[in-house]
Amino acid sequence: MGGRTAALRTPGSTHVLPAARRRRTGRVRPHPPPRRRTAPWAAGPRPAPPEYEARRTLADRFARGDITVEEFMERASALNWNPGHDDTKK
């Protein structure tokens, strides 16, 4: 067999099959099955970054009245968050 493919000749048809690979021991083994690749969007939605959870917790505490406006703004700036601005849209 020459090359990477071998022609299987039967009366009336020709089929091209992948050539078998040889190990160092000389044994012939077939090619491994092709890897199944999944597209990045097929794996499902990505989990939200941890800073989004922190922002949500901060907003909940402010909504319940646990912290003042000054504390809220100070902690939001520590998270590099500008409340009221949607940074998910580009």
Rank of each mutant, 00 (worst) to 15 (best):
Phe72Glu: 01
Thr25Ala: 11
Val69Asp: 04
Ala20Val: 05
Pro33Gly: 10
Thr38Tyr: 11
Arg23Tyr: 06
Arg24Met: 06
Ser77His: 02
Thr88Tyr: 01
Thr10Asn: 06
Thr25Leu: 11
Val69Ile: 06
Val16Asn: 13
Pro50Met: 04
Leu79Cys: 07
Ala42Asp: 13
Lys90Trp: 00
Asn82Thr: 14
Asp60Met: 02
Thr68Leu: 03
Trp41Lys: 11
Arg56His: 02
Ala78His: 01
Met73Pro: 00
Asp86Ile: 14
Trp41Gly: 11
Arg55Trp: 07
Thr38Cys: 04
Ala54Val: 02
Phe62Met: 02
His85Leu: 15
Arg9Ser: 08
Ala48Glu: 12
Met1Pro: 03
Pro34Arg: 12
Thr14Phe: 03
Pro49Arg: 03
Gly12Pro: 08
Val69Tyr: 06
Arg56Asp: 08
Leu58Arg: 05
Arg35Pro: 15
Pro49His: 07
Ile67His: 04
Ala78Lys: 05
Asp66Asn: 03
Ala63Cys: 00
Arg46Met: 01
Pro11Arg: 13
Ala7Asn: 11
Ala20Asp: 02
Thr38Ile: 05
His31Asn: 13
Met73Tyr: 06
Gly44Val: 04
Arg46Cys: 00
Pro30Thr: 07
Gly65Asp: 08
Gly12Leu: 01
Gly44Asp: 13
Gly12Phe: 01
Pro34Ile: 10
Leu17Thr: 03
Asn82Gly: 01
Thr68Gly: 12
Gly3Ser: 05
Leu58Phe: 09
Gly65Arg: 08
Arg55Asp: 04
Thr57Trp: 04
Ala43Val: 00
Ala43His: 12
Asp60Gly: 01
Val16Met: 11
Thr5Phe: 13
Arg22Gln: 06
Thr68Arg: 07
Lys89Leu: 11
Arg64Asn: 08
Pro45Asp: 07
Arg61Leu: 00
Pro40Leu: 12
His31Glu: 10
Arg29Lys: 10
Ala76Trp: 08
Gly65Lys: 08
Arg23Ile: 03
Asp66Phe: 04
Thr5Gly: 08
Val16Gly: 12
Arg36Val: 15
Ala19Cys: 04
Pro45Tyr: 00
Asn80Gln: 11
Ile67Lys: 03
Trp81Glu: 12
Glu70Thr: 14
Pro34Gly: 07
Ala63Met: 02
Ala7Val: 14
Phe62Tyr: 15
Arg75Leu: 15
Lys89Val: 15
Ala6Tyr: 12
Val28Arg: 13
Asn82Met: 11
Gly44Glu: 13
Arg22Met: 09
Lys90Asn: 04
Pro32Val: 01
Arg24Cys: 05
Trp41Asp: 13
Leu17Phe: 10
Ala19Trp: 11
Glu71Ala: 05
Pro40Arg: 15
Thr38Val: 09
Ala54Gly: 00
Ala7Trp: 11
Asp66Cys: 03
Asn80Lys: 12
Asn82Lys: 12
Pro83Gly: 07
Arg64Trp: 08
Glu53Gly: 12
Pro34Glu: 03
Asn80Asp: 14
Pro47Thr: 15
Arg24Gly: 15
Pro30His: 09
Leu8Met: 06
Pro40Gly: 10
Arg35Trp: 04
Val16Leu: 15
Gly26Asn: 05
Ser13Lys: 14
Gly44Cys: 07
Phe72Ile: 03
Ala78Gly: 02
Asp86His: 05
Glu53Val: 12
Pro47Met: 08
Ser13Trp: 09
Ala7His: 12
Ser77Met: 05
Ala6Asn: 13
